[in-house]
């Protein structure tokens, strides 16, 4: 059997899969199963610096099917830009073959949702007090903030956002985001 994540059919929040939407104005998708890999602690910076284009803290670089997130000086992770995530696995394998630094276990501890569409920002304003204006939160920025009443990591993706948060709270977060989407429809 393979990994099961909260919004998988048999997952802990599998009963709430209908909260995800694929509308023209706003879409909410679950990317939790998408490959990612991170190291945290002594040696993380050096290990990644040899292999990827390492950004400054709280910034993202993107290229070759990877997004590299610098969450702290020694807290770095890569996200796949698609469901297959072919560039992620070689990195993981290389680390497993000769471990340096320590796994941050983000693929287990964080869920990953993507909120996109022309109304994504209006929806997100209902979920975070963070300044989402483009001038304050650019395409390469990371916001480690509160989102949907949880600690979350927020990134820009196209006309929307990716958010990484406590995986055990997926049911609650997906419910709250959907409620904000519904409120945007009612209140505009």
């Amino acid at each position: 059997m393979s990994a099961v994540y909260p919004l998988s059919e048999a997952g802990a929040a599998g009963d709430l899969r209908d909260r995800l939407v694929a509308g023209a104005d706003v879409a909410l998708a679950d990317l939790t199963p998408w490959p990612r890999f991170g190291l945290k602690g002594a040696g993380a910076e050096a290990w990644f610096a040899d292999r990827v284009d390492l950004p400054e803290v709280n910034r993202v670089t993107e290229g070759a099917g990877l997004r590299v997130l610098r969450l702290g000086t020694r807290d770095i992770m890569v996200l796949s830009t698609d469901a297959e995530g072919s560039p992620v696995q070689p990195l993981r394998s290389a680390w497993e073959a000769a471990p340096q630094s320590y796994s941050s276990w983000r693929e287990e501890t964080w869920a990953w949702l993507r909120l996109t569409g022309p109304k994504a920002t209006a929806v997100a304003r209902r979920l975070t007090a963070f300044d989402l204006r483009a001038a304050a939160f650019g395409e390469s920025d990371i916001a480690q903030t509160r989102f949907a009443h949880q600690d979350g990591v927020l990134l820009r993706t196209g006309d929307g956002f990716d958010v990484l948060f406590d995986i055990a709270s997926t049911a609650k977060v997906v419910t709250d985001i959907r409620a904000a989407i519904d409120r945007e429809e009612v209140f505009g």
Binding site: V4, P6, A10, G11, A12, A13, G14, D15, H149, D166, A168, S169, T170, A171, K172, D176
Partner: peptide
Amino acid sequence: HHVAERRTALHREHLRLGAEMRPVGAW
């Protein structure tokens, strides 16, 4: 009315097994 809700990976498996679920803190 935001009540924190955390679910373990086997939340629905416990329900399938007939568990009576109760909140313990957020869990």
